[in-house]
Design a protein around this nucleic acid. Structure first.
Lengths: 370, 370
DNA sequence: AGCATTGCCGAAACCGGTTTCGGAGACGCA
DNA sequence: TGCGTCTCCGAAACCGGTTTCGGCAATGCT
């Protein structure tokens, strides 16, 4: 048994070709081979090529842990996902990880992932990870408008990159989906259908994306020549329940919205819930638009019109940007964006009732229920 | 700039206390300290305690990468998630990772995660990960009934543990949720409501869980004294579209089911879709039960009755089991299970129509539509 | 008292790399 | 021919640990 184990280890070890094997085969010293492979200028091109060729032929790959103890870099990017009460289920993670790991493994990097329960927990975990050299830096997702993680990492001089655009974004590297454009597009879409009063349910202003989406909503109204009415806006919703309450509030207005734009698909669930219990027909008597392209939107009936986010591409871009940044720390902050793509659904349509008619209809429905 | 970077590195390095620091403070050699901490028998209890106490006081934590190059163990467990066409969105991942990383970090381990696009890709990635010592072993999720990953890892003698129970499970370590019990419970629940003809839509038999759920369905029928009718069973569904087709097939029977049990929540989406387009009232004219407790079930209307799976606990248990196994490789395979918890929803109710009445009703609806 | 054990620790090699330093040889130039 | 310079590589220290080996002192035993 025991001997079996050791035999296996030995078998695996002999399978691995070390820098000593390589140097022996080339009749060079370890040091020379190392410098040749790492691009030191004091190696002639001839021997450098000879070394590289031999390394390739023998299948040599440096053991990153051995490098790490001298260089301090472990070639692994860290991701600490914070499990808050509301967005733990967000399924974007799988696709995002796919992109990240793909970009990482393309460069020979790996992804070290950890989870935390709170903000302070996150920072503690990040500290431990860099201290133990388990991560050279971090990808920050769900960035806050004023993110303590950014403050911490900047102070400690640990490399990082954001998925999202925080408040003071000039010096930080980020990648993001421009959801403000999506929100504006949604307004255009709804306005062309004939909607005049369009409500908005936004999420917590702590998050960076909340700002972008709210701004997009206002920009869209302006572009379509619709007047902004503060009563049509409810912000700070995080769960379907919050959104349901917001929906009831919006529908209780004397001139209620005929369409509601939600900052996330999850919030749209609350709108559906209220509409379904009231007996309001979604897609005609009330139009709804979400954002995220989450599978829950596909589970709704009628299917939720929303904006699909390519989280995989985001992950891939973020990973590539991060690694490039680690390669050349002198380079300035890199920034990039993509757009979300609209995916229509049965949840929008021409308004069959005007705002006034809708108010009366709601009164009737309430009377029937009572 | 450059000097800035090096200064930071030095600052971080001095912050880290090495085994040499510790040995110097104790007036012992590195070797003695190392053996003391690693439980070698040739160290007196007195000095061992002295060392441990000092280590704690000085905040010494061995650098895992340095250990790894000698021991071969990197104290990181690998997870390769395979992004198949259908279950990529499954949101279980976040909770599962939470459990895994929690268990890992409790023991000072980390989680290295990678993604792959196919089965052969997965095995290639696993091979690279152990070769480069980025993972000491693997957690296998979504295990297949006959899983090539298991065959590979057993052959290569790489430690692993399964989330799920494959075909030949005697010698493998696993943890699983006993979905067969849930399926049987679902039958009981439906039978008590008055359902006699209960359909079943199962997923691809490749997956290990498909077997458990199908068996549970049959066991439930037997327990309730209901006869098994092969025509009420459709298997091999992977997407809502497949499930929709299966639903149409079941409803076209001369004596259609008044309730449909689905192997997953995702499949239930297909049932809803057909019912909604036909105008069939879910929860009265047709009852539906799912499995997984996915958020999409909460987005459906009426809310899907399903079985919630505690993926976090599963992750935590799997992580702990794996690490324990690595600590003592001689130990026999460990195995454990938990049960899913039923979460009622509006999708089930007493059948307002018998099977025959439902068939006539469906004929009417079809006539109206045509 | 003499001798073989045993317990406990130091010394040193080792793991797989990186990095510094110094020197041999080729070369240019007077 | 002599000398300085430059190119390129070897030698060796180092990183932070682990593990083997050997020896000294204290014990047990006759």
């Amino acid at each position: 048994m025991r001997s079996n184990g050791t035999m296996d280890r030995r078998a695996r070890d002999t399978a691995r070709v070390t820098i000593s094997d390589l140097s022996r085969a080339l009749s060079l010293t370890k040091g020379t081979v190392s410098r040749a492979l790492n691009g030191y200028p004091d190696i002639s091109e001839a021997t450098r090529n000879r070394v590289i060729r031999a390394a390739q032929a023998m299948g040599y790959r440096p053991l990153s842990q051995a490098q790490a103890i001298k260089t301090g870099r472990s070639c692994s990017l860290g991701l600490v996902v914070e499990l808050s009460q509301y967005d733990a289920h967000r399924p974007f993670l799988a696709e995002f990880l796919a992109g990240l790991t793909q970009a990482a493994s393309a460069e020979g990097w790996t992804l070290t992932i950890a989870t935390s329960e709170s903000e302070t927990d996150t920072i503690r975990i990040m500290r431990d990870l860099v201290r133990d050299r388990k991560a050279d830096g971090f990808i920050l997702q769900r960035v806050l408008w004023e993110d303590p993680r950014i403050a911490y990492l900047e102070r400690e001089n640990v490399p990082f990159i954001c998925y999202g655009r925080p408040k003071n974004r000039e010096k930080v590297s980020y990648f993001d989906v421009v959801s403000e454009a999506a929100m504006a597009d949604a307004i255009t879409w709804l306005a062309r259908l004939g909607h005049v009063r369009i409500g908005y349910i936004g999420s917590a202003p702590d998050y960076a994306y909340s700002h972008a989406r709210r701004d997009g909503y206002r920009a869209g109204l302006a572009a379509e020549g619709l007047t902004y009415d503060a009563r049509l806006v409810v912000e700070g919703a995080l769960s379907p329940d919050h959104a349901a309450q917001a929906t009831r509030q919006l529908l209780a207005l004397e001139t209620p919205p005929t369409a509601i734009l939600c900052a996330t698909d999850t919030l749209a669930r609350g709108v559906y819930e209220v509409a379904n219990t009231l007996g309001l027909k979604i897609g005609s008597e009330l139009s709804v638009v979400g954002y995220d392209g989450a599978p829950e939107g596909q589970a709704m009936w009628p299917r939720l019109a929303t904006f699909a986010v390519d989280n995989r591409q985001a992950g891939a871009r973020l990973g590539a940007m991060f690694i490039a940044r680690m390669q050349d720390p002198e380079a300035p902050a890199t920034q990039g964006v993509i757009r979300a793509t609209f995916t229509p659904g049965g949840s929008t349509g021409r308004p069959t009732l005007t705002s006034d008619q809708l108010a009366r209809h709601l009164a009737n429905l309430a009377a029937v229920t009572a």
